[in-house]
Design a protein around this nucleic acid. Structure first.
Lengths: 342, 342
DNA sequence: TTGTACGCGTTATCAG
DNA sequence: CTGATAACGCGTACAA
């Protein structure tokens, strides 16, 4: 909207100079007399002049804005990443526009379109669960448009990615359960088409194998929704079936772990004495529930910072075309709480 | 950045017509032959033409973008509000730029400035804990700039606000504790300068008074931080002091309630049999902790929807100047879980 | 039915 | 040291 904001033109008119003079004076360009410079600056301050960012974008074909696309804000990990992104972006004079896809592919597509219409200089994205086709990314990458993927990264060559070591995190979690004496460990896995789900599953399997524990495919459950209810139902029906049952659960996310915990408690099991549980992400509630949930902490803030730093450097190096792909892998941390300590 | 995107000019050149013809053809203006219209549209589609939103903003002095300022994304309530905002905004062709202040006044100021530089059409804001001076809002309001306040609203006449009935929510929570037989009810209050804190306190006090319970000022604690640790410390030191102690706690937010719960459990109290607890906001963890936490649910999504609807109508009615203030009050809902049921 | 010219706010370039 | 001009991409009043 129009705020009656003073423009460079207004200043020029008031001072009887040209707009170019005003522009130069304001930016301390060489070759402006101190006198006019002072006059201009004083008036600008007095009128509370602020350059119109839209006009600048148009003129310079650069908006100083980056787009961020995430699945959901109501998600501890992602909201932490956002904070990291904002910090670095603001510190470097960049603005952030944010869209959540609500895990829907169509929303992802339309968000990207809109952001491009608005001339964003680059894109940070963690794609939706529904996204199985990466052509919308490839098209942009072919045009040399700066994109950094974080957490959920596509299998496309030469992209710039920031991820956590999901394999290692899952391995650590599972090994920890094993070290605690749990021998029959089930896994609540994430959505099938996400690499993070696969890596976590692999870490889980590797830990079992490395410790000579057998793998039971009936104890690996996919949780496409990721809701508490989903895992609650899964675990309940598993334990109600009877037979040989797991004495440990590694869940690929905390919500699923919490659901499992509720289910087990309702069935009368004691945690951690009967069954040990470890989650993934370190949501705030982990330390609040009973027993407190052991989990794998992901450095979300740091991920946001790094992803943004990388993106900004992509943006400035866009000419030096030889853009090799790059994947930064951040370490996770096993947080041992009571849910897994016998 | 420049994406090699086709412009209206490119189409015009390719078709040997003027840019105005192209412009008109694309928008189905009257007075364009069907023939050229078709040619233009076909080529536009073929080139994947999309209008440059920045140029449009400049031309029309309208960006179709609204700014949203909140204290923190990592906050269940606010992230829910964001979803509501996005829904309505997108449905009406508006974009959303988001900034979090991290509860800092300086960040609030700078975010607003930046957003104005980017020509946002209106602002949705829930201000920071540190904000005690509202001049930055007043200035904009005087210029007739569209602002809608939500949840945390300033005491300025004739503003447009969306809030929940904090008084009633707090009253319901406290009354519920009383109905359950708790007689000595403490209050963990929010930051002093927020109206929501005051209202919740008032609701708490009114419920006590209405039920002939005495008010004990030593049992009212302010929690400026709102962290778990803060309330944990407060409650621990209270109960370690001994003497007559509360048998009920109404916390003005769930995190504080959770902290209190941890403290009490560590001290060996049973919840809810010894002490009943009710929180405020209905974070996801409420149903996961043990015992599940009774709380007051706030309709965050709806608040976002309504606030945005109001803002958009402010934006379109900016001429019909007689803008009276308006405050929409949404109902809360008492969710009774085990933490408060004797 | 179509084209010309201008302006939105800014800066880069070229002249003076 | 300063000014005029063009351009970024688009829409529109006016002219033809």
């Amino acid at each position: 909207m129009k705020l009656g904001q003073a423009t460079i033109k207004d200043i020029a008119k008031a001072l009887n100079v040209s707009t170019s003079t005003v522009s130069r004076a304001l930016k301390d360009y060489p070759g402006i007399s101190n006198e006019t410079k002072k006059k201009v600056k004083d008036l600008a301050e007095h009128l509370n002049y602020r350059p119109n960012a839209v006009a600048l974008s148009l003129r310079k074909s650069k908006s100083n804005t980056i787009g961020v696309i995430i699945p959901e804000v109501v998600h501890f990990f992602f909201s932490t990443v956002i904070s990291g992104i904002e910090e670095v972006a603001f510190a470097n004079g960049y603005n952030v526009v944010l869209c959540q896809t609500n895990e829907r592919f169509s929303r992802e597509l339309s968000s990207i379109e809109t952001m491009l219409d608005n001339q964003i200089d680059g894109l940070l994205i963690s794609y939706s669960k529904e996204t199985e086709d990466f052509n919308h990314f490839k098209k942009l990458l072919d045009l040399n448009f700066p994109i950094v993927f974080f957490d959920r990264v596509p299998e496309i060559p030469n992209t710039v990615n920031v991820i956590v070591n999901d394999f290692q995190g899952a391995y650590d979690a599972t090994k920890h359960l094993i070290d605690q004496g749990y021998k029959y460990i089930a896994h609540l896995a994430g959505p099938k088409n996400l690499t993070i789900s696969k890596k976590r599953m692999e870490g889980y399997l590797a830990a079992l194998t490395d410790h000579n524990l057998s793998i039971n495919n009936d104890w690996i459950f996919h949780c496409p929704e990721g809701t508490k209810e989903e895992s609650l139902d899964i675990i309940k029906s598993l334990y109600l079936k009877g037979g040989i049952l797991p004495d440990g659960i590694f869940a690929s996310n905390d919500i699923a772990a919490a659901g499992a915990m509720v289910a087990l408690k309702e069935l009368g099991y004691q945690i951690p004495s009967d069954i040990g549980i470890v989650g993934f992400s370190n949501w705030q509630f982990c330390s609040m529930i009973d027993p407190p949930l052991s989990t794998i902490a992901q450095p979300g803030f740091k991920m946001g910072e790094i992803a943004t730093t990388l993106l900004l450097s992509c943006i400035s190096n866009k000419n030096n075309s030889d853009a090799k792909g790059e994947t930064v892998v951040l370490d996770t941390e096993l947080l041992i709480r009571q849910s897994s300590v016998k």
